[in-house]
Amino acid sequence: MARKKTITREHILSAVFEVISTEGFSGFTARNIANKMKTSTQPIYLEFKNMDELRNVFIDQVTAGLRNEVYNQSYTDDCIVDLIVNYVKFASENSVFYKALFVDNHDSGTKLNKFTRNLFYDKINQDDVYAKLSDEVKEAIFTNCWVMSVGLSSLAASNRAKPTVEEIEVIIKNVIEMSKKHPKVSLTKLK
């Protein structure tokens, strides 16, 4: 009779979350994850082909959670402001995890950039005010708001500032207006 599997995919993903939430991606090793579960690395490799597959599944799980639970909160009547308020709140409440995902350089950075871009465009293209703007203006708003939101989030994550919803709203609305007036902005690394 075969032994019953005691370490599931969900256990492994939970351990990955614990590791990255405390150590960042520098701690993303099979040994560290196994240590969190108090087991050998064998269950990890029974569930996942390799560490790249595990990281990709984890990032997919994280982005689904961010999309469905974190970034859907409403604070204002502006979808961009709400998106950035949620981003800053996430950074403030999950500083190590935020830094691991969005600040540190790691193999999933490009995938997270695409997630951020796609989420932004999904939100604005469903909004009556923003959907009718030119692609150039939308791109300027995206780039400028992303740069500003990373700055605000980094300040919040490091406890150097705790911007309120009202403060974020004023800052982001100013950034949006500036982007509409001066849409010639491009940072190729953000794509």
Rank of each mutant, 00 (worst) to 15 (best):
F90D: 02
Y71C: 08
D78M: 05
T143W: 07
N56L: 07
S134N: 08
I171N: 09
V147W: 00
D127G: 03
E93Y: 07
V85W: 12
N94I: 00
Y130Q: 13
V88N: 10
K99R: 04
I172F: 08
T63N: 06
N159C: 06
Y75F: 15
N56R: 11
D122P: 02
D60H: 12
E136I: 08
N68A: 03
T110I: 09
M148K: 13
A140S: 13
H106Y: 10
I172S: 04
R55I: 06
L54P: 04
I59G: 02
A157K: 07
R55A: 15
E93P: 01
N144Y: 01
S154E: 07
M148G: 00
A131I: 10
Y75Q: 09
G151Q: 04
N174S: 13
V165W: 12
D104P: 00
L152M: 15
D77F: 10
L66D: 05
N113K: 12
H106W: 12
V70P: 10
I141K: 07
E136W: 02
V88R: 03
E136A: 10
H106A: 07
N118W: 00
E47W: 00
V96I: 13
E47Y: 00
M51E: 04
V150W: 10
D128W: 04
I176N: 05
L133C: 02
F48Y: 15
E47V: 01
N68T: 10
Y87Q: 04
N159D: 14
E139H: 08
D127R: 02
S154F: 02
L112W: 10
S149M: 12
V57P: 04
V62S: 01
I124C: 11
I59K: 00
N118A: 07
N125L: 15
E167K: 14
V62L: 06
V165T: 14
D52T: 13
T164H: 00
I141M: 12
K99V: 03
K114M: 15
D52P: 03
